[in-house]
Simulated scan of single mutants.
Amino acid sequence: MSFAAATARASVATPSGPIRVMVVDDSVVIRGMISRWIDAEPDLRVAASVRTGLEAVQTLERANPDVVVLDIEMPDLDGISALPQLLAKKRDLVVIMASTLTRRNAEISFKALSLGAADYVPKPESTREAGAADTFKRDLLFKIRQFGARLRRPVHAPSIVPAPAPEKARVVPPPAAHAPISLRPFGLTAPRVLLIGSSTGGPQALLTLVAEIGPVIDRVPVLITQHMPPTFTTILAEHLGRASGRPAHEGVDGEAIVPGRIYLAPGGRHMRIMRKGAGAAIALDDGPQINFCKPAVDPMFASAIEVWQSGVLAVVLTGMGSDGMRGGKAIVEAGGSVIAQDEATSVVWGMPGAAAQAGICAAVLPLDQIGPKVVRMFSGGRA
Rank of each mutant, 00 (worst) to 15 (best):
T59I: 11
I217V: 14
T52R: 10
P84T: 06
L60D: 01
R242F: 07
A112Y: 01
I290P: 00
I331W: 00
I339W: 09
G254R: 09
H270R: 05
I217P: 09
P166M: 01
A362Q: 09
G268F: 01
E212M: 13
I339K: 02
P247N: 11
V121M: 12
A281H: 08
R104N: 08
P366T: 12
R138G: 01
A13F: 07
R150G: 12
A237T: 02
D323V: 10
Y263Q: 01
H178S: 13
A205L: 09
T7R: 12
T102M: 06
E167K: 12
A314G: 15
G353A: 09
M325Q: 14
T135W: 03
T345P: 09
K294T: 00
S49K: 10
F142Y: 14
S182V: 05
L60K: 06
R150M: 13
M33D: 00
H239S: 14
P65L: 03
G201R: 00
L240P: 03
C361V: 15
T208H: 15
D286P: 00
M33H: 06
V297C: 00
H239E: 12
L183S: 09
M1H: 08
I19D: 04
K89I: 03
V57T: 12
D25G: 14
G53V: 05
A5D: 14
A48Q: 05
V258A: 12
F3A: 07
G277F: 08
W308G: 10
I290A: 07
P124Q: 09
S310L: 03
D71F: 10
M377N: 06
A283K: 10
A88E: 15
Q226A: 03
W37T: 02
V50Y: 08
P75Y: 08
G328F: 08
R104E: 11
S16C: 14
H249S: 15
P18Q: 06
I235S: 08
P366L: 05
E255I: 01
V24L: 09
P173M: 01
E255H: 06
V315G: 02
P259L: 07
D39M: 11
V67Y: 11
L207F: 00
A278V: 07
P164N: 00
P295C: 12
E167Y: 04
I96H: 01
A302D: 11
V220D: 08
V12T: 10
P154M: 13
G319M: 10
R382H: 15
G260T: 14
L77N: 05
A106I: 02
P247V: 11
L101H: 01
L206N: 13
A256F: 13
M1P: 01
L115Q: 13
S159Y: 02
L87I: 14
L313C: 03
P295E: 10
R138H: 04
L195E: 08
C361P: 04
P266Y: 07
A149C: 06
